[in-house]
């Protein structure tokens, strides 16, 4: 039996704009993945604890408050500290172009900026998921 791909969709930080996160959660469900949706105002700690308990393959972070340069890398660091750096982190939201490179360097494997079609996210997951199969 094929291993199902599991994805956590989480919103770190304090902004309550969850339409993007909900949209992506629903679209990934429709694409056949199992999506664990944790809702708004999550801390990097709660996101990482959830990722480990749920044994996810991916963590998708959505942020519109501007704190992505602090919070996204923090999630990657905490996963590493837990020995769970095989979990792939990607992000989305209003993220300026000039931040993308430094975020990628810090281990966020993809950044999806406003206007990205959902197929780009699915392509990313499909290209990465094989390497995460246990």
């Amino acid at each position: 039996m094929e291993r199902k791909t599991r994805i956590e969709i989480a919103k770190p930080g304090l902004d309550g704009h969850d339409r993007g996160a909900k949209y992506i959660a629903r679209a990934l469900k429709d694409a056949g993945y199992e999506v664990i949706y944790t809702g708004i105002r999550q801390t990097p700690e709660s996101i990482v604890a959830t990722a480990i308990q749920e044994d996810v393959d991916f963590v998708g972070l959505s942020l519109l408050s501007g704190a992505h340069n602090e919070l996204f890398p923090r999630v990657v660091e905490l996963l590493k500290a837990e020995g769970a750096d095989d979990i792939i982190v990607f992000g989305g939201g209003v993220i300026p172009e000039e931040d993308v490179e430094s975020l990628t360097k810090k281990g966020i494997q993809a950044i999806f900026r406003p206007g990205t079609p959902i197929s780009a996210v699915i392509d990313f997951i499909e290209s990465k998921k094989k390497t995460t199969a246990a």
Binding site: K29, Y33, T50
Partner: peptide, 10 residues
């Protein structure tokens, strides 16, 4: 699709 939105945890 076999997909699922798991939202109880929220």
């Amino acid at each position: 699709t076999g997909g699922s939105l798991l939202g109880d945890r929220l």
